[in-house]
């Protein structure tokens, strides 16, 4: 690549190259963020359930 312009237009293939990279970015980011949130939610759920069972020992 010689110029920023050439980089953005991708030699006329921008409409194919950038959506391809956009898709990959979105999917990879989702897979990077999702497990952490799921872990956090699960720990919170387990904590709520353990507190709940302590208050009302059956």
């Amino acid at each position: 690549m010689n110029s920023w312009h050439e980089f953005l237009t991708m030699g006329g293939y921008a409409v194919y190259v950038w959506p391809a990279y956009g898709t990959a970015l979105v999917v990879l980011l989702a897979n990077a963020i999702w497990p952490g949130r799921q872990q956090h939610a699960l720990l919170k759920e387990l904590r709520r359930r353990s507190l709940h069972s302590e208050e009302r020992p059956t």
Binding site: E6, M10, G11, G12, Y13, Y16, V17, A20, Y21, A24
Partner: peptide, 10 residues
């Protein structure tokens, strides 16, 4: 041309 660069993610 530059279209082949999709290879780096495909």
């Amino acid at each position: 041309g530059d279209g082949f660069r999709i290879i780096y993610v495909h």
